[in-house]
Design a protein around this nucleic acid. Structure first.
Lengths: 352, 352
DNA sequence: CTGAAAGCGCTTACAG
DNA sequence: CTGAAAGCGCTTACAG
């Protein structure tokens, strides 16, 4: 096994272009391109010469140039509000899975929950991607119309844009919320008793759907909504408030797991025992939910799957295999019952 | 406030180019370009006309074309083994922070811990980025030399490439491990007693450094290494093994938090109480560490900061403000003492 | 201050 | 099967 000496590049130097390859192989640039791209209409001998020259010159194709002439980038743009946290991790995992299977690259960008940044991110995608997966509150139809190039297809993920009929894949937040609340209700025979909800930010569509689910599933119990903002701190504050209440609610449904956790921390600090004194449930099933003690009852939507499907759909649109606009798709979620809402530890354990 | 009617694009149509803008503004393409790019040498009237035409045509510049002629993308490529989990979240957060401040875009790609994929990811960066942040085991000098275009600067993050003097930013895993083990030793006066280590994968450099730290800090105690692979499952298996041992180690240092957590789960199942029966510590300070009960003693390296600094350095290299090759930089870490290694709950609480 | 032209690095009809 | 040429959409010396 020969070990070719690795050239240590100690200073910046221009890299080889396809012209260099063609020249050292003694063929035309067109032929070099054909050989490099594995076209069949190339004489084996020539292909050989080109490939040798390429590896000798350490040729790496220039993607921007390629994109420009092929009018194709084999890349999907993904715009997310943020990359931090389990939720977005799952989105990326799903998208990545599907992209790899199709041999597509991913260009990921964040909008930081800011409309101006979202606009900038979307603009920057032009010429870099064949299509866009957009997940971002704070975008509206005008922003899209002004910043999205007319020729780039887009699919929305867990995002609703009023007015415009874009293809969208969303979690069924309403149904998920109904399922948790019905579970809390059945377990605690709460009819007539007080049940609390710690809501997410008021301007967030997901918050709104979960809150609606809560209100519609109360089923005879008296509902009470504490305002939160999806942060652990706001859950903690709500927990302190709950601990002081009299009568104390029989159960509390937090609009996400982080708030449920903050709430449980506050309750424990006030000497209350979950679920004996008050049952708690969240939404999302972040990894901590399973590891908490008591472990947290929650709702899990398969975000990775949702994202995977969104990318598949986008790829089909790009390939002309699917219509430019599709109907919205909703993905279901399922309840995961754990210790925080059940007295029987054994039953909860199987659900972990 | 006038509400311009949003044009609903119901079928794919080509988007406007700078030629279209120039034509409708009645100026040359060169002038359109100058106006669009905010050059000062442009008559105000012309600038006005061009800008109006651009917004009217919903013009969005084609990035690939721009990149090709400017020979600059304003984009940094980031190659990670994976995007899943807290660690990479932190990397991305740090990189993103620095990139935004400099007005740079990020092109993120994953190598899935596979050399071939890493090579493909690195190749695909050519022409798309001005420089590369590479974090990936499984790469060696040859792979880099063969797949990294000669003109793209690169900085390594938490990655070591034997032989080649690339600029690198790494966590000081050795020092961190020494700190935890010394803490465990002091707390439990373990001289002469058994202390266990659950190691990471043997071929991982970080594992190796943490293991060395463990062995060097034993300080009179007897060391015992259980092989793990960074997964919760392997920590769980190690925990079961520890529970059976006689004499039982006084403390265990897991090479990462996930294994420490798996271990604690197993110990609890076997009826052992942490830290009374055995002290436990991990490495990384993932979010769950703080939320576990007992909360987990661990080591925290500021990964976001490390990554931020790496990007800053790369940006400087690109701008010619820093040498093409820099010396390696090490970032420190600090011990976070929590309940899993201390009997005094009060003391632990302040550290949370 | 403005325009015509060359060029960035590639691909792809079009002839041969 | 191969090559010369045009073109992808932009920017930037170069003249004027």
């Amino acid at each position: 096994m020969s070990t070719p000496s690795v050239q240590t590049v100690s200073a910046r130097m221009p890299s080889a272009t396809i012209r260099d390859v063609a020249r050292t192989a003694g063929v035309s640039v067109a032929s070099a391109s054909r050989a490099l791209n594995g076209m069949t209409t190339v004489a084996p001998a020539m292909r050989e010469r080109v490939l040798t020259a390429a590896s000798q010159l350490r040729y790496v194709p220039h993607t921007a140039a390629r994109a420009l002439s092929r009018r194709r980038t084999d890349t999907i743009g993904v715009v997310l509000p943020d990359l931090h946290g389990e939720f977005f991790s799952e989105v990326i995992r799903g998208v990545d899975m599907a992209a790899r299977r199709r041999g597509l690259h991913l260009l990921i960008s964040t909008s930081h929950g800011d409309a101006a940044e979202a606009a900038a991110a979307i603009r920057a995608m032009r010429g870099r991607v064949d299509g866009l997966l957009l997940m971002s509150p704070h975008v509206d139809g005008h922003l899209l119309a002004d910043n999205l190039a007319a020729d780039v297809p887009m699919v929305l993920v867990n995002t609703q844009v009023e007015g415009h009929p874009h293809t969208a894949f969303c979690v069924d937040n309403y149904a998920g919320a109904v399922a948790v609340v019905e579970h809390l209700a059945s377990g605690a025979k709460i009819s007539g008793r007080l049940v609390a909800h710690i809501s997410g930010p008021a301007d967030n569509l997901e918050s709104q759907d979960r809150r609606r689910g809560f209100l519609d599933a109360l089923n005879g119990a008296e509902g009470l909504v504490l305002e939160g903002d999806f942060s652990e701190e706001s859950g903690y504050a709500a927990g302190l408030a709950l601990a002081e209440m009299n009568p104390r609610p029989a159960a509390v449904f937090a609009a996400n797991d982080m708030m449920a956790i903050g709430c449980m921390l506050a309750l424990a600090e006030k000497g209350l025992v979950v679920p004996r004194d008050i049952a708690v449930a969240g939404f999302d099933d972040i990894p901590v939910a399973r590891l908490m003690r008591p472990s947290l009852t929650t709702v899990r939507a398969n975000i990775a799957d949702l994202s995977r499907r969104a990318l598949e759909c986008l790829a089909q649109i790009i390939n002309g295999e699917a219509p430019w606009r599709n109907a919205a798709q909703t993905v279901g979620s399922h309840l995961i019952v754990r210790e925080s809402s059940t007295v029987q530890t054994a039953a909860a354990k199987t659900a972990i």
